[in-house]
């Protein structure tokens, strides 16, 4: 049972990482619009656009 002394702190570290990631996402405005991304996935075209300049940097 002593493994719990290691696993729970490990869980807390993961938790902390998740919180940090969420904070970063919220601050950078990723949750400002929750509608568009949901639609976007339905629209992706299977065919590749013709070769051209690469998408954003």
């Amino acid at each position: 049972m002593n493994i719990i002394y290691f696993l729970i702190p490990l869980g807390l570290v993961v938790l902390g990482a998740a919180v940090v990631a969420f904070f970063w996402a919220a601050r950078s405005g990723q949750f400002d619009d929750l509608e568009t991304p949901a639609w976007r996935i339905l629209l992706d075209d299977d065919r590749k656009p013709p070769p051209g300049p690469d998408k954003s940097a």
């Binding site: 619009d33 509608e35 568009t36 639609w39 976007r40 339905l42 629209l43 656009p49 051209g52 300049p53 998408k55 954003s56 940097a57």
Partner: peptide, 28 residues
């Protein structure tokens, strides 16, 4: 949403455009 998809795809290919995001509900 198709309109925003079109604009994003078309404009992302333009040289010099770093990022474009269109919200179809508010058109922002």
């Amino acid at each position: 949403a198709a309109c925003s998809w079109l604009i994003e795809r078309a404009m992302a290919a333009v040289p010099g455009v770093r990022e474009i995001a269109v919200d179809p509900l508010t058109t922002r």
